[in-house]
Design a protein around this nucleic acid. Structure first.
Length: 611
DNA sequence: GCAAGGTC
């Protein structure tokens, strides 16, 4: 009997279906001489400190550097504290008995570093010695699955990938556990002051943006506005220059040849530029872009959106949600017309879906090379009913985005008029001449509301128009806004793009900080630690958060570069470089950061009352 | 009591 193990039930079901296996058992599917089973993500994790004899939290234990790491079953909260997750325990038992009977194991966890780790941790935990082969596919269509099974790789081909994954896991444990205990113990506050490779740079980003915003000194500047009259249609133009003082602006204002100053034809049309601008449709959603949109539209937190999507995924209404790709392959694209057809009766989008059926579909989101473990989020086309309003909202964002992504370009007419009247003034306006994909939601872009849909009258170069009004505008420069969930997610995705070191920047280019699956939980962790709080839509640091930031901000653990550095080394390990050398460096860094944090906590201690 | 990673 051959046993196939997938990362999650949905994938095992898909593969079983392709094989024609239909016998559903508890924890696996059987048929055609194969058995298809699954994990639920990571079933095992690196064992906590007490399993190496580091009992309690104590400075004497630090730094904790286990000679050999152990694995333990994923924990879940219960009345008696953290206990082995019973459903995980049960599934491990199932996998164990299947592996015992197996003649061969085929690994079908996701094609990536963590997918490899998920399988290997199970395999080593169960002390299994059976040979295994690796299925390596990046899309789960029938063709891709069949093709993958014709090209199974020897399991040992991925030993170095496992090494890099194991190093990632151990390093996060060593640095995170030790730095956290060191800072918490030395602060003497008896609360958990956690630190980690991902959460601490994230906290640093929020704090530094907050301080930058708070310490921002707005600069006041002045502009001159004039109002012109073209055959009764009024429009506004603003001085091309801005001025530091009101007096300078006044000089320009006085030069304006306006009606009250006795000039009948005050504004001279110096130039008129009108050009069409084509705006391609947006890409399909990945998890992050959808979380950002749901935060902007509905104010949902990243965590809420993920959980709503998980519900929709479990109801088989949308495809796999924790994806980092905004593309689909040609195989999936082949099914898109049929999919669109299912939405021709949709209350909001029916008309656009019907339109798309006879239109040439835009293929901007179709690129097999940019599909990683999973493709972009799509509706499955299954009938949706009895959704809660929040589920419906997220579902509609998925459906709407699909229609947008395959829709036509939006064509805008951008007009720029330059008026001469003592000085140069400009008026600009944008008019949508063909809505294209923007017809789906038919909304005005909030951020660009001022310039969108401002239509300007038709004027000709050389014309002179009366100026009916003029004024000095007082404006001030604005600070960068606080982070909110949407802008933070975006910043985490693109973290590392500004690193000076080219190699580190390259190493991080596809990752950023955290992963699609973990970013929502990072935000929740920072809130749970009382480092940050939600204030309206913004993420604001608390006093605790700011003081922790104060003591770590110069440390490597607070920089995105640390991840860049690790990613570079992990990639080298994947291509065969020494593991021990990296592990040695991590141990050294663990000793250093532990020492630093044991000192640093003192400044967080509440001042003693002097009698 | 602690990391980051994955998933139901």
């Amino acid at each position: 009997m051959k046993v196939i193990i997938a990362e999650k039930p949905s994938v095992a079901r898909e593969i079983a279906r392709v094989f024609g296996a239909t016998v559903k058992k508890d924890g696996y599917i059987e048929g055609k001489g194969y058995t298809f089973t699954w994990a639920f993500g990571h079933l095992l994790q690196l064992a906590p400190p007490q399993e190496y004899g580091y009992y309690g939290w104590s400075v004497q234990n630090l730094p904790m550097l286990p000679a050999k790491f152990k694995l333990s079953i994923r924990k879940v909260k219960s009345k008696e504290g953290m206990v082995d997750d019973p459903s995980v325990k049960k599934q491990l038992d199932t996998i164990k008995s299947l592996f015992d009977e197996a003649t061969e194991i085929i690994v079908a966890t996701d094609a990536g570093r963590e997918g490899e780790l998920i399988f290997r941790y199970i395999y080593y935990y169960l002390k299994c010695k059976k040979p295994f082969k690796r299925l390596w596919i990046s899309s789960q269509t029938d063709a891709a699955i069949k093709d993958g099974f014709k090209n199974l790789k020897p399991g040992t081909d991925y030993d170095t990938l496992f090494n890099s994954a194991h190093c990632r896991s151990q390093s996060d444990w060593l640095v995170g556990m030790n730095a956290t205990q060191a800072l918490s113990l030395s602060s003497g506050t008896r609360s958990v002051l956690s630190l980690g490779r991902v959460q601490t740079p994230t906290l640093a980003m929020i704090c530094s943006r907050y301080l930058e915003n708070k310490n921002f000194v707005p600069q006041i500047y002045f502009q001159v506005a004039i109002q012109l009259d073209k055959d009764g249609q009024l429009f506004r133009a603003i001085s091309a220059e801005s001025f530091k003082s009101k007096e300078d602006a006044q000089i320009i204002l006085d030069r304006v040849e306006d009606v009250t100053g006795g000039f009948a034809n005050g504004g001279h049309i110096f130039s008129v530029e009108a050009k069409p601008r084509k705006e391609p449709p947006p890409l399909l959603h990945d998890l992050s872009s959808l979380q950002q949109e749901a935060n902007k539209r509905k104010g949902f937190t990243a965590d809420q959106t993920l959980s709503l999507l998980q519900n929709l995924y479990e109801s088989k209404l949308v495809t796999y949600p924790r994806t980092g790709s905004r593309y689909i392959g040609d195989d999936v694209f082949a099914g898109v017309p049929t999919l669109i057809e299912k939405f021709t009766g949709h209350a909001d989008f029916g008309k656009q879906a019907t339109f798309l059926l006879s239109a040439k579909l835009n293929k901007r989101s179709v690129n097999a090379k940019k599909v990683t473990d999973h493709h972009a989020i799509l509706p499955t086309g299954e009938k949706a009913y009895q959704l809660t309003p929040d589920q419906q909202a997220v579902y509609d964002m998925v459906v709407g985005r699909m229609l947008e992504a395959f829709h036509q370009e939006c064509v805008k007419e951008i007009t720029k008029i330059v008026v001469q009247s003592g000085a140069k003034f400009t008026a600009s306006g944008t008019v949508i001449s063909s809505a294209g994909w923007r017809a789906v939601f038919n909304e005005v872009d909030e951020e660009k509301k001022d310039e969108e849909n401002t239509s300007l009258p038709k004027v000709k170069k050389g014309e002179d128009l009366p100026i009916t009004n003029k004024a000095i505008l007082e404006k001030q420069t604005k600070p960068k806004p606080f982070y909110n969930e949407a802008s933070l997610l975006k910043a985490l995705e693109t973290a590392g793009k500004e690193i000076d070191d080219e190699e580190l920047r390259y190493a991080m280019k596809d990752s950023g900080l955290g992963t699609p699956a973990t970013r929502a939980s990072i935000i929740e962790t920072l809130i749970k630690r009382d480092y940050i709080k939600r204030e309206k839509k913004n993420l604001i640091p608390t006093e605790t958060g700011l003081s922790v930031y104060g003591v770590v901000k110069e440390q490597q653990i607070a920089q995105a570069e640390l991840t860049g550095n690790w990613e570079k080394r992990l990639e080298e390990i994947r291509s065969g470089a020494s593991v021990t050398e990296f592990q040695q460096e991590i141990q050294n860094y663990t000793r250093a950061i532990t020492r630093e944090m044991l000192k640093a906590g003192a400044s967080l201690r509440a001042p003693k009352i002097v009698m």
